[in-house]
Amino acid sequence: MIKQIGAGLFLMVLIGVVVFNVFSEDQGESSEGEVVEYNVTGDSSQEGTSITPPNAPDGLEVGEKAPDFTLETLAGETLSLSDLRGQKVILNFWATWCPPCREEMPRMEKFQQEYGDEIQIVAVNATGSESSIKKVRNYIEEGGYTFPVVLDKELNVNNDYQAIALPTTYFIGTDGVIQQPRKVGPMTYDFMVKMKNALN
């Protein structure tokens, strides 16, 4: 019952964001193709935001074992979270239509280039909310992103992790347990470094 409610809330938020982005797509890019960032908080120091429905679940807690999953990568292979046991993992939920997700992706790539031998980033695309896999592939290729991107076509993993708002990120230790509170909203490079150092 809780999973059905969570799935329903997640789909309502996704539909709302997709509708908003369809109507504002022409305003979302400049003539040079650069993404225009909108600050809707009224706080000029705010680096990004996310939209969460009222009474949304709080997500998985520190100390819980991270639910295992197996998803297809953009390269057509499969990746299981359990295959990464023994490694620190940043598990990021995102979509191409999500401006805060697009904001943090270059920071994630910079972090990957610097610390990819110490910690593994896995980017779980909310593929069930995307217009096409081709759009996801093009976005990743154009950005030159090198961390693994897996496709959550049925949104089952998004639901299991209660990733109602995007981006949402979990921090998993070498023991496969969530060791730090989840982050809802875009991460900074310094925050990723802090989380890497906090995991064991």
Rank of each mutant, 00 (worst) to 15 (best):
M1L: 14
K3F: 15
K3N: 12
I5W: 06
A7C: 09
G8Y: 11
N21T: 13
V22D: 12
Y38V: 15
Y38P: 10
V40K: 05
S45H: 11
P53T: 07
G59A: 05
P67C: 07
E77F: 09
L79F: 15
D83A: 14
L84W: 13
G86K: 06
K88G: 04
I90G: 00
W94N: 00
A95S: 11
T96K: 06
P100S: 00
R102C: 06
R102A: 14
K110A: 14
Q112C: 01
Q112Y: 08
Q113E: 14
E114L: 10
E114P: 10
G116I: 11
D117K: 12
I119N: 01
Q120S: 14
Q120V: 13
I121Q: 03
V122A: 04
V124G: 09
S132Y: 05
I133S: 05
K134F: 11
K134M: 04
K135P: 06
I140P: 10
G144E: 04
F147D: 09
P148N: 01
V150A: 00
V150S: 09
V150L: 13
D152P: 12
K153I: 00
L155M: 15
D160Y: 13
Y161H: 04
A165W: 04
L166D: 03
Y170I: 01
Y170Q: 09
I172G: 02
D175G: 07
G176S: 05
K196I: 00
K196R: 14
A198L: 08
L199G: 05
